[in-house]
Amino acid sequence: MLHQQKLRFSTTGRGTYNVTKQITEVVENSGIKNGICHIFIQHTSASLILCENADPTVREDLNRYMARLVKDGDGIFKHKDEGPDDMAAHIRTILTQSSLSIPIHKGKCDLGLWQGVFLWEHRTNSHKRNIAVTIMGE
């Protein structure tokens, strides 16, 4: 069995957005009991991560860590038509993930207790982001 669906999210600037609930709903409504859920973000300046979901300061720290690792407006960047966060956003995307695969067990996403699926917006402005969810199994 196979189910494919597109989800659309609005972001309000740089940061992480918990999309676990929306992904879980797609899996539960697909009727697939055992298999794999593949999630793909169709952008090069936003990405996907699996991250600790209990303490929001984890993701605040992650944001600070990434801001230190990849500096907006770094002097080595030439691609800056859309501002100092433009090239930094592409690199942040490469250092994280464009796709994630999660096992499905008994009709549910088999995530760890403290694991959440997060969309990480790397641009400082608001954007509309598409995520394609493909579920395969039986």
Partner: peptide, 29 residues
């Protein structure tokens, strides 16, 4: 309908999904 996986069989090259709009993006990455 489905998923496609690409795999490169060595560690001296890698695969990336990146911006295609500006040629300079890939080199800066």
């Amino acid at each position: 309908t489905g998923t496609c996986q690409l795999f490169v069989h060595n560690s001296l090259s890698c695969l990336l999904i990146n911006d295609t709009a500006d040629e300079s993006t890939k080199n800066q990455t």
